[in-house]
Amino acid sequence: MSDLLKTTNLNLSFGSIVVADNIDFSLKEGERLAVIGQNGAGKTTFINICTGLIRPDSGNIYFADEDITKKSARAIVKMGMVRSFQLPQVYSEHTVRECIELSLAARDNKTSLFKSLSSCVDQKEVYEVLTSIQLLDRSDVLAGSLPEGHKKLLDIAMALVLRPRLLIMDEPTSGVSSQEKHEIMRILMGVLDKYKVTSIFVEHDIDIVSQYATRVAAWISGAIAADGAPDMVLNDPVIQEQVLGQSFSRTEPNMNTVKLVKGVS
């Protein structure tokens, strides 16, 4: 079977800092890959490159055998590679329901100027989604006023309802209390299985990685240091020392901001 996502000789550096060091990577349909690595190892950058937010200095990215290196984030989404964010990206002045409805409208290309949004989308589906992320009772609250954990779920749901072939999640469980982490992953994986979505998720919690991933890739200084079955990678002495060391599973501080559209700053 051919690869769903593939990168060849991916390189990127900011000044003297190398954030992607000759990355050759491939992902098959149906895999559930956990990406691990310390802060600044280049995990988010790798996602940003794959999803068209940042252009690599050199190298190519293929999605479903098509070269997407120069494609826009939007075009890549339309092809079926969708992502969620480490810092949840919601429309803070829209209600929770509207956030979901907008994703559904985008998926089905509903762009009416006259018909109301709620009548453009299947309300049954909205209900199901809201129920599955347990935000039904808060559906008329402004998304910006949700607590961080709920925002996170909403963010993932906004990506998931697009029915992607590949969903990339940047730390889906960070900012969520440790009891809830497993609950969230269980719900998530259920939905992913149901719709046969291949997934990549960046994760710091070792329990979650070993429980839910079918494959693990460890990043060190912009390069993939180990890649393979969870048991193999997690027991690799180099990985244990350099990746799973004391700082592992600590919540990352966030200094990452978002600004896709240039010319504004």
Partner: peptide
Amino acid sequence: LFTVEKARRI
């Protein structure tokens, strides 16, 4: 003309 694009992460 002269702005150096800054890399930003999400």
